[in-house]
Amino acid sequence: MRALIPTWDWHTIFVAPWTTDFAIYGWIFLMGFLVCAACGLAGNYLILRRMALVGDAISHSVLPGLAIAFLAANAWRTGMAAEVNGMVDTGGQEPGMIHGFAMFTGAMVAGVVTTLMIEIIHKHTRIKQDAAIGITFSTLFALGVVLISVYADKVDLDADCVLHGEIAFVSIQPFFSLSGVEIAPASVVLMGLVAILTLGLIVVFYKELLVSSFDPGLASSMGIHAGFVHYALMCWLSVIVVSAFEAVGAILVIAMLILPGATASMLSTRFPVVLSLSLLHAAVSSILGLHLAIWLNSSTAGSMVVAGAGLFGLVWLFSPSQGLLRRWVWLRKNKRSALQAESLHPPYGC
């Protein structure tokens, strides 16, 4: 039994990551936080629009988009190189740029195609939306797997990495440098940009996103095109998913999309507060997850999600307005007239 529990060493688990090993773990924490924050912020809108499963679908179906984008970028590059007869050195920075650009375009196209496919199946057949989602994402994901295995030599994607990613690699990545000054690992910089842009878009388009999520009819009457907002959201979601891919993989992205928002929504009924709380959830779950991963010597992203789920469980128990504990205390207090009174004053959010 003892062998099943890894040794507990306070110093290695809790002190070292923030002191001697900060150069490694600092970046891992930051990356984890940025992924959770970007996913969590966007995920709030998925929850409000009852589209949590669409997030799931998109995180899977970006795969064929990525594979096709890689193939296209390769073809374009070799084509260009052939045209100029090998006079251009295609090594160095350039291919990375092309691939990076292709990757995001591919992901966005895949995101929109997924959303469109779900809607077309849902609207033109008798198949309901959840089944349509099931059909769409499994088909597209399978297509991606086929493409990757057929063109394994040309597509620099590892199916294993696509599924669960590895966040620990960020610390050994080449640094992104601006005019000679090394700033941060390249993927941290990218994820940071995506997270900041996500926050920025939410702040700038707060009204439009809120009203089109709450009442699409009212939104359209105000000249806010609900359909456009929907597809824009899906596009941006694909960008977030693709940037988070490398670090946490397709499966864990889903958890990170939904957990922060779901936890926060049990603590507040004001949307701005819910948004801030989901950021807090992102920070706490990435710190706890990091320590858990060091202790168990396990997958960091996996541990972060486990920590996030743990927070969700705690909040479910102890939430001051909707927690199980509060409900239990309330029922005990009002034992005699519990059933009667519950119909008058529901114990949720009094």
């Binding site: 409000l48 009852r50 009204k207 439009e208 809120l210 009203v211 999520s213 709450f214 009442d215 009819g217 009212l218 359209s220 009457s221 105000m222 000249g223 806010i224 929504s265 507040s268 009924t269 004001r270 949307f271 819910v274």
Partner: peptide
């Protein structure tokens, strides 16, 4: 449509939405 005020059926929205009464009325100003 800017000159039209619209009151949809009550069931058409999700009343668990994390907004309070004031937030909903404010949406009318958007």
């Amino acid at each position: 449509l800017g000159r039209v005020g619209y009151v949809p059926q009550r069931e058409s929205v999700d009343w668990d939405f994390p907004v309070n009464v004031m937030d909903v009325v404010m949406m009318g100003r958007y």
